[in-house]
Nucleic acid binder design. Structure first.
Lengths: 351, 351
DNA sequence: ATGAAAGCGCTAACAC
DNA sequence: GTGTTAGCGCTTTCAT
């Protein structure tokens, strides 16, 4: 910048003005500066600018590791590369997309980092130090760290319970969604023997979904279970297979359920495999539902009835909250609940 | 940081060490510093750090605007939100994913920004000022700007022709892919009357694909066209419909082509609609192929035979080049050509 | 409309 | 192992 100033015969202050506020400089001077900058290959330092102005023009997002980045070599990686990418698009991708677009509308860029757990020099810390505010997906960053960081800059927590009261927060209507879904099964398909497969006891999402299920049962005068019929530790496809098998084995001889509601799509898809293996037809013999609306859910056969989470919108709303909080740091913490929508497909008999 | 130093009774240098190189500080001292930092809500400033150390620990990506961010309200947005997200996953998303993962492996975060055209304060400039190096998708940033910026930091150009000789560069084997595809049609399906629908004359990708098509024709002893049978200006679905109609009208009375090869998936999918409308069966009456392997290509009926571009890998390789160049700024510019793979589906008669 | 000067919060030599 | 001291490249009053 000093070089540019010297070469164009002005002071560094004027160079700065040319970039920050072009109109405050005489056109002729401005052109001279711009020319000099070009011929010197000048690129303004975002760091220096950020240091001096105390803003970065960047928003951030921390999301969980969606895949082991070290397992990048060998047959596994090959197989994955061959797979259709659409089938493996993750939540975080959609949130990223939503945030990037919204951020751009407000003139911000987006810094993204999957959080590796780590010491004080974790990626989270790096993100925190380089943005004006950021969003964090639930279960990504230790609450304690967020507590500390949130004293210095706006954070919005996404898609989980509100762990820190004074932070902005967005969640998804898990309970409402599952209730709607169960109602549909009961009312529209006339099913009465339902089973629910939950997740880890600590998963607030899975819990909320179970509550929605309970409500629908209660409304319909069906027996209301205190606990999910089965719990999976991981909510993976493998666990879905296992639990589906277990459920059917348990029902051997007795009447088996007419429908199994899984706490997420992954498990439901695993269950679809197990059922096919056992020769149980879906939806004729038994209905199966998931939750999330992952892309794979529409590709599997039968296509999966599920509850779709508005992940894109989550990202957009997150930026909205961040922008607001940046504009008014004193305003009261906001908590949004985004609506979800039941997606009726083949696995419940709608397809 | 000064506060933390004071509160823990050490110098700022020690505080710095605690974060940069924890082992160089006595454990007791370190804990005292960390405690002080926690109770003060200290977050290291990435800006200051970057300024002092002249590195950011961030890599960047500039990609084209994939959607008008202003058209975010109203019915349009609603409709889009309802659509299955997997169907609209774009290239950039996959590249982002690839880059993020690879960057993370190397301890970098990723800064992403869709480039709005603009003045000296464009997002590109912002990105350039905040990263150690970045990747640019073809047609995103004016060559002139890249020229200037590349004097200061590593840039790798993605998925286009090599516009600047001294930059690292990755492209995709457009010509090879289309040649393979055409060979398949000719050899495996025995088709001999082929037609090629190209794109704008300036699109190097479309041109390369046409060349591959020509080669396959030549090899097989078929007539080799000098020019695509038809050119579309936009490579959109609408243009695909239009060109398919035009091609069929033109062939009225005469023998129509046995296959139409489109320069991308979008057009091929548009053509599928047009053909269905006219009662022309695919692939029985005519084969149709695309190029790109967008997610939609596997969802349409009949599913589209196409050439899949390894976008994820593009992102990963981009990071690789950046890392290398950062480690050795003097090494000769590298140009990679990534292989593509023909995906045989229904629209050519394979499904 | 332009210039001078004081930091912004940190890292990196270099001393001790 | 820890402290001292220069900057890093810019923004921002305050003058002019």
């Amino acid at each position: 910048m000093y070089d540019v100033a010297e070469r164009s015969g002005v002071s560094i202050a004027t160079v700065s003005r040319v970039y920050r506020n072009p109109d405050s400089v005489r056109a002729e001077t401005r052109d001279r500066v711009l020319d000099a900058a070009r011929s010197l290959g000048y690129v303004p330092s975002g760091n220096a600018r950020g240091l001096a102005s105390r803003t970065t023009g960047v928003l951030g997002l921390c999301f969980p590791d969606y895949a082991d980045p070290d397992a990048e070599t060998g047959a596994e990686a090959e197989a994955e590369a061959e797979a259709d990418d659409s089938a493996v698009m993750l939540y975080s991708d959609q949130i990223i997309r939503g945030m990037e677009r919204a951020a751009r509308r407000h003139g911000y860029a987006l810094l993204i980092a999957a959080s590796l757990v780590g010491g004080p020099e974790s990626l989270v810390a790096k993100v925190a130090g380089r943005v004006d505010g950021f969003a964090v997906l639930a279960k990504t960053v230790p609450t304690e760290d967020l507590e500390v960081i949130s004293r210095r800059l706006p954070i919005v927590m996404l898609a989980g319970p509100r762990e820190i009261d004074h932070l902005d927060h967005i969640e998804v209507a898990n309970s409402d969604g599952e209730r709607e879904l169960a109602r549909h099964l009961i009312r529209d398909h006339g099913l009465r023997r339902l089973a629910f497969v939950g997740g880890e006891r600590e998963s607030p999402d899975a819990q909320a979904r179970f509550r929605g299920y309970q409500e629908a049962c209660r409304e319909a005068g069906l027996p209301v279970a205190d606990e999910p019929d089965l719990r999976a530790e991981m909510m993976t496809q493998a666990e879905g297979e296992r639990t589906a098998d277990a459920l059917l084995d348990r029902a051997a001889g007795r009447e088996r359920p007419e429908a199994i509601l899984f706490a997420n799509d992954q498990m439901a898809i695993g269950a679809l495999h197990a059922l096919e293996r056992r020769g149980v037809r879906v939806p004729d013999d038994i209905a199966v539902t998931g939750f999330d609306g992952i892309p794979l859910s529409r590709i599997v056969r039968p296509s999966l009835t599920t509850v779709r989470q508005p992940m894109r919108r989550l990202g957009e709303e997150a930026v909205g909250l961040l922008i607001h909080r940046l504009a008014d740091p004193t305003r009261a913490p906001v908590s949004l609940m985004l609506p979800v929508s039941v997606t009726r497909r083949s696995s419940c008999g709608c397809g």
